[in-house]
Computed example of a mutant assay.
Amino acid sequence: MIPMVDLKQQYQSLKTEIEQGFADTFEKTSFILGPNVKGFEADAAEYLGVKHAISCASGTDALHLSLVAAGIGEGDEVITSAFTFIATAEAIRYVGAIPVYVDIRPDTYNLDPELIESAMTDKTRAILPVHLFGQPADMGAIMALADKHNLKVIEDCAQSFGADIDGKMTGGIGLAGAHSFFPSKNLGCYGDGGMITTNDDSIADTLLMLRNHGSKERYYHDVVGYNSRLDELQAVVLRAKLKHLPEYNRERRRVAHRYSAGLAGSVVTPPHEDEIGTHVYHQYTVLSEQRDAVMKKLADNDIASAIYYPVPLHQQKVFANICKDVRLPVTDQIASRCMSLPIYPELQNGQIDQIIDVIQSV
């Protein structure tokens, strides 16, 4: 069986370091906002080239707290993509704002900057681009629009940790960047975890309070906050993995490029890499008019595949009341044809070739 991701192989290579970190934590009994959380935040800020990295309980919380800190609230509109995981829009709704969906580019599956301006109203307060599947969105064009219209930009970096645009990491371009450490991510822990990055001192100060019950000093509360803290044990895992992330992302690109070369001329269209940033391939997502046949053939050969995302957000029941007249033809077309193949750093060339051969046989 070839799974979508194999976390066991990665764990085996880091087992000694992680388990020693766990043992040290148990010995010191410092479990909440302890030395590993602080150490990981410092390591992550340095790696990403940002002034502040504030960890929290999940990627969803990272989005939510970023919007709260940015002052986005009731009745505001936030322009974003409907071709993403629901957490992107959930966070917007948590603060009482309205997600305004704009169609995506047919090649990168990211927000199409050329459509953003026409979606703006006098209620538009922010743009929330998603660096989907590890491909950076066109942040140059998006930031230009934000500057022109005095809008805030919150980057959804849940799938792009380590991706960069001209050497500048995603999450360090907009006002803030929201990261997820769900286990299957490029940098994943062994449970839930998240982080917000920013170069804005005021935003950082607010986030430090928001994640910890609105408190700067214990038992003194300046604002209504949340209980959203990264677990110390998860920070142990993340510190161990962060040192290897450049290698992990290089290996993901190796896998992706071998796929793309081998799948040329097949019934699937490989993902597009453009000049906008370095794709880190959280997912390797192809398009096919014969998706069902390809997925069945893979399953018959004990090879996993998945669809991210079969139902775009503007078609979800939960958003029916705000999306009655929303038309996103490119998003709909991509959702009906997309499928993702196994990708992880430890995937061997022989396994990749096996998958390619199965697809080529369709």
Score class of each variant (00 low, 15 high):
residue 179 H to Y: 15
residue 136 P to V: 06
residue 133 F to C: 14
residue 154 I to G: 00
residue 150 N to M: 05
residue 135 Q to E: 15
residue 147 D to I: 12
residue 176 A to N: 11
residue 135 Q to Y: 15
residue 123 K to C: 13
residue 141 A to P: 03
residue 164 D to P: 00
residue 140 G to Y: 08
residue 155 E to P: 00
residue 123 K to N: 14
residue 164 D to K: 10
residue 173 I to T: 07
residue 131 H to S: 06
residue 156 D to E: 05
residue 144 A to Y: 06
residue 165 I to E: 02
residue 166 D to A: 08
residue 127 I to P: 08
residue 179 H to D: 08
residue 166 D to E: 12
residue 157 C to W: 02
residue 164 D to I: 00
residue 130 V to D: 00
residue 158 A to K: 00
residue 157 C to H: 07
residue 131 H to C: 01
residue 150 N to A: 11
residue 169 M to L: 09
residue 180 S to P: 04
residue 138 D to A: 15
residue 126 A to M: 13
residue 163 A to K: 01
residue 129 P to R: 00
residue 132 L to G: 09
residue 152 K to C: 05
residue 145 L to S: 04
residue 144 A to L: 11
residue 153 V to H: 06
residue 164 D to H: 07
residue 153 V to N: 08
residue 126 A to E: 12
residue 156 D to A: 02
residue 128 L to C: 12
residue 142 I to N: 06
residue 132 L to Y: 14
residue 165 I to D: 02
residue 126 A to T: 11
residue 163 A to V: 04
residue 136 P to D: 00
residue 125 R to I: 05
residue 126 A to C: 12
residue 133 F to W: 13
residue 178 A to G: 05
residue 150 N to G: 05
residue 146 A to V: 12
residue 162 G to C: 04
residue 141 A to M: 09
residue 177 G to I: 03
residue 158 A to F: 03
residue 124 T to D: 11
residue 159 Q to L: 10
residue 159 Q to Y: 07
residue 166 D to R: 11
residue 163 A to H: 07
residue 134 G to K: 12
residue 135 Q to R: 15
residue 128 L to H: 13
residue 133 F to V: 13
residue 164 D to W: 00
residue 161 F to C: 11
residue 147 D to R: 14
residue 140 G to M: 04
residue 129 P to S: 05
residue 178 A to P: 01
residue 137 A to H: 04
residue 172 G to M: 02
residue 171 G to L: 05
residue 147 D to K: 14
residue 159 Q to S: 13
residue 123 K to V: 09
residue 167 G to M: 10
residue 162 G to R: 02
residue 136 P to A: 04
residue 173 I to D: 03
residue 147 D to V: 10
residue 175 L to T: 10
residue 161 F to E: 01
residue 168 K to C: 08
residue 126 A to P: 01
residue 134 G to S: 14
residue 153 V to L: 11
residue 154 I to M: 04
residue 137 A to K: 04
residue 145 L to T: 14
residue 148 K to H: 08
residue 144 A to N: 13
residue 147 D to F: 07
residue 170 T to Y: 00
residue 145 L to Y: 06
residue 128 L to P: 11
residue 160 S to Y: 00
residue 164 D to F: 01
residue 127 I to V: 14
residue 143 M to A: 03
residue 147 D to L: 13
residue 145 L to M: 09
residue 138 D to F: 13
residue 173 I to Q: 03
residue 142 I to M: 08
residue 138 D to T: 14
residue 139 M to F: 12
residue 139 M to K: 07
residue 160 S to I: 00
residue 144 A to W: 07
